[in-house]
């Protein structure tokens, strides 16, 4: 009765017990947040033990849910502990200036994406669109990413409904899903870019106004 699945389960469950025990004894909030990442790993292990292609597809939602909640929780933590950005020494990323180059590159990417077609093609076309918008308005990086996240979610749901109700247009749906996945993962990148850029100029302006 001790098949491979049960042996794998024993290992994963044992590691889960260790992770949960650590979480139970930890008192510091930040360390709890970090330990949750450790706890997620046995969860992925349990799903991966399915051993079919379905397992790979189910690991993705598990991973994304973990990342998403971590994103929200870390912001709640920042607010709760009253941690702020320090104005000095923020990263200045030079973005391509407004001109013809972004348009040409974006068009090339979109055309190449359409030629490739299907999921990969949709992804490349989406990359072209993201690149165009990012090069265009880098000052409103953050609100732009917000809008992009919303729109991509819309594209995604639309292509899902195409799959469901108009199955003969499945090709369109795959393209849409491919474009959606790329735009959708923009928000995950935002802690690197979105935070640093808008905060800097605003704080400087406030400092200038003070003496007057």
């Amino acid at each position: 009765m001790w098949n491979q699945y049960s042996i794998g389960m024993a290992v994963v469950l044992a590691s889960g017990v260790i992770a949960f025990a650590a979480l139970a004894f930890e008192r510091d909030d930040l360390h709890r947040l970090l330990l949750i990442d450790l706890v997620e790993i046995p969860s992925l292990g349990v799903v991966a033990l399915l051993g079919t292609d379905l397992a790979e597809a189910l690991v993705l939602p598990g991973l994304v849910v973990g990342i998403a909640e971590l994103l929200a929780l870390s912001h709640i933590y920042l607010l709760k502990e009253d941690l702020r950005d320090r104005p000095e020494g923020y990263l200045h990323i030079e973005v391509v200036e407004i001109g013809h180059a972004p348009v040409i590159i974006a068009v090339l990417l979109v055309v190449y994406g359409l030629i490739l077609s299907g999921f990969t093609g949709g992804g490349i076309a989406g990359l072209g669109i993201v690149f165009f918008f990012m090069a265009k308005g880098h000052h409103e990086n953050f609100s732009l990413l917000e809008a992009a996240a919303g729109i991509s979610w819309g594209i995604w749901v639309c292509s899902f409904f195409v799959f469901m109700f108009l199955p003969q247009y499945w090709m369109l749906a795959v393209l849409g899903a491919g474009a959606g996945i790329l735009l959708r993962h923009c928000p995950v990148l935002h802690p690197l870019h979105g935070r640093a850029l808008p905060a800097g100029p605003r704080l400087h302006r406030a400092r200038h106004r003070e003496p007057g």
Partner: peptide
């Protein structure tokens, strides 16, 4: 699996990401 036969999973999953991002961006702003 992700987009056709189990598409609803994938619709709910970006919805979770979307909600989490909305919370984070609201708190940030």
């Amino acid at each position: 699996i992700l987009y056709n036969t189990r598409g609803l999973d994938t619709v709910v999953e970006p919805t979770i990401l979307f909600i989490a991002f909305a919370i984070a961006s609201y708190l940030f702003r």
